[in-house]
Nucleic acid binder design. Structure first.
Length: 353
DNA sequence: AAAGCGGGGTT
DNA sequence: AACCCAGCTTT
């Protein structure tokens, strides 16, 4: 009998005792179904994002947009403000795109099949499997980073889990053992096990694991070597100048381009390299110009080393599309990514409105 | 198949 | 400083 065949019974028993209590989760262990909209929103927020980071965003989001029709109708700037700081902002745009698909193509009713879910914007194999199993009770695996790690160790599989082929193999193996009576509990139990017991970086808590009696990696003393993962590419460093331009107690903001990094969000004007000369190009005449210190922000693939220039503008004129933002507008209207958080105190000092 | 896309907690 | 997180889309 293979390791995965032996897993469901002890795993589900462990889950009944140890499941995390989460606002989008149905009562664990009873095989109850979750609400599709709530489960879906949570799954999108949780992509590449820890549970702890999601909780407050999820509560705010559901209070503001309690149903799929609300999401379909909300204005984009308000949507981005709800997502501000969570990262991977295309998730929010795809969320709305999918909500409009549901309204237009499915009569406002959530599609209840794996293929129907997969056709929604921003929903891939993992998310379709998660919603299908948790909200609709369908026996489909939901294979995320946690599950790949658990399966790699449990079965002693040394395949590179960053490769699609390895992921396909593990997903297929799970399809064969997922219990038809409680697929949602099984998938969530796998994720909880990965998040709480089968920890990454060679630090699993095997003594607490319901699979400790038959885990290949544990029995063969290979938990430190599994899973196998190809190294990530190094990030590049970019020096940028950030212009904090003030006028009558407000600060200048511009919208980032439609595509690429932080697309569509608002920012203090900034450019690679840069210097005082750019102000003139923008038609901004500085009455005073001073240095504002430095800040650093690390993305997955780029590191910004930023230096701020603080300028007092002589006139109201700004380039097309730029705005003057007061404290209230900055707080409630404009979504500014966390990359600029390092200069928030400077803005706070110079803004008066 | 590889690269782009955020931000923050943990080790 | 590296690793990783309830991944998806585009190239």
């Amino acid at each position: 009998m293979k390791e995965l065949d032996r897993l469901p019974i002890p795993l589900l028993a462990w889950y009944r005792e140890n499941a995390r209590v989460l606002p989008w989760r149905p009562a664990p262990g009873g095989g109850a179904l979750g609400d599709p909209y709530r489960v879906w929103v949570s799954e999108i927020m949780l992509q590449q994002t820890r549970v702890a980071a999601v909780l407050d965003y999820y509560r705010r989001f559901m209070a503001a947009l309690p149903a799929v029709a609300d999401l379909a109708a909300v204005e984009e700037d308000r949507l981005m403000k709800l997502w501000q700081g969570l990262g991977y902002y295309n998730r929010a745009r795809n969320l709305q795109k999918a909500a409009r698909q549901i309204m237009a193509d499915h009569g406002g009713v959530f599609p209840g099949t794996y293929e129907g879910l997969l056709s929604l914007a921003g929903v891939g194999e993992y998310t379709a499997g998660a919603v299908a199993s948790i909200a609709f009770g369908l026996p489909v695996p939901a294979v995320d980073g946690n599950v790949l790690r658990v399966v790699a160790r449990l079965t002693g599989d040394a395949g590179d889990i960053t490769k699609p082929e390895t992921k396909r193999r593990m997903r297929g193996a799970l399809e064969a053992v997922i219990p038809a009576g409680a697929p949602g509990d099984f998938n969530q139990a796998m994720m909880d096990l990965g998040a709480m017991v089968c920890l990454p970086n060679g630090a699993p808590l095997c003594a607490r694991c319901p699979a400790r009696g038959f885990c290949r990696a544990l029995l063969e003393n290979r938990t430190g070597e599994l899973p196998v993962k190809a190294p990530k590419r190094a990030r590049r460093v970019e020096a940028r100048t950030v212009y904090l331009i003030f006028r009558r107690g407000r600060v200048a903001l511009r919208r980032r381009p439609e595509k690429g990094l932080l697309s569509g969000l608002w920012e203090y004007p900034n450019e690679p390299g840069g210097g005082p000369g750019l102000l003139e190009e923008w038609g901004v005449t500085p009455l005073r110009l001073e240095r504002g210190g430095t800040a650093r922000h690390v993305f997955t693939h780029i590191e910004w080393q930023m230096e701020a220039l603080i300028a007092q503008a002589a006139e109201d004129a700004l380039p097309e599309g730029w705005v003057w933002a007061g404290r209230e507008a900055l707080r409630t209207l404009y979504a500014v990514p966390s990359a600029f958080q390092g200069f928030a105190h400077l803005v706070e000092e110079h803004i008066c409105e």
